[in-house]
């Protein structure tokens, strides 16, 4: 049977930017990213079990500029997925479905991600200073 090339809907490319769709795809992207990030957690835990040598190696790699960049991405992804996940859970119990509310909660998640990620890093640097 010949396959008929039917038009696919929706054509995502014809939509202008909307906060709702951006948050939606970011939830998935950060989810996959955090999944890869569990490898870092596994490395950290296994090194901790192996002893001071392997553990110092992890700490050295993580505190280098590239390690910090990865850790910053990891923190931001986690904070975003955390707050946007709460947004999803609210929908699951039937809250916040009105379009203006949905947009407002989307921007709130975006703002919280920036603020809380910054706070975590400020706390991290001040812990290091002590």
């Amino acid at each position: 049977m010949a396959k008929v090339e039917r038009p696919l809907s929706p054509h995502l490319g014809v939509y202008r930017f909307q906060i709702t769709m951006t948050m939606s795809i970011l939830h998935r992207i950060t989810g996959v990213g955090l999944g890869l990030g569990t490898l870092l957690m596994a490395w950290w835990l296994i090194a901790l079990a192996m002893g001071p040598g392997p553990f110092d190696l992890v700490q050295d790699v993580v505190s280098g500029w590239f390690g910090r960049l990865v850790l910053l991405g990891f923190t931001a992804s986690l904070v975003f997925h955390f707050f946007n996940g709460i947004r999803h859970l609210a929908w699951d119990v039937g809250l916040g479905f009105a379009l203006p509310t949905m947009r407002a909660s989307g921007w709130t998640v975006a703002a919280l991600t920036v603020i809380v990620t910054a706070l975590i890093w400020i706390a991290g640097y001040s812990m290091r200073g002590i």
């Binding site: 901790l48 002893g51 001071p52 553990f55 110092d56 700490q59 505190s63 986690l78 955390f82 996940g85 709460i86 999803h88 859970l89 699951d92 975590i120 706390a123 991290g124 812990m127 290091r128």
Partner: peptide, 30 residues
């Protein structure tokens, strides 16, 4: 959903714990 709700609490604990361990040596972390 159930795992998400459990993780909300556990992740906060984990991030706070990691912050306390920032720059810690092996003896402290283990």
């Amino acid at each position: 959903r159930v795992s998400a709700v459990a993780l909300l609490a556990l992740v906060v604990w984990f991030v706070v714990s990691l912050l306390m361990l920032t720059g810690a040596d092996w003896a402290t972390a283990s």
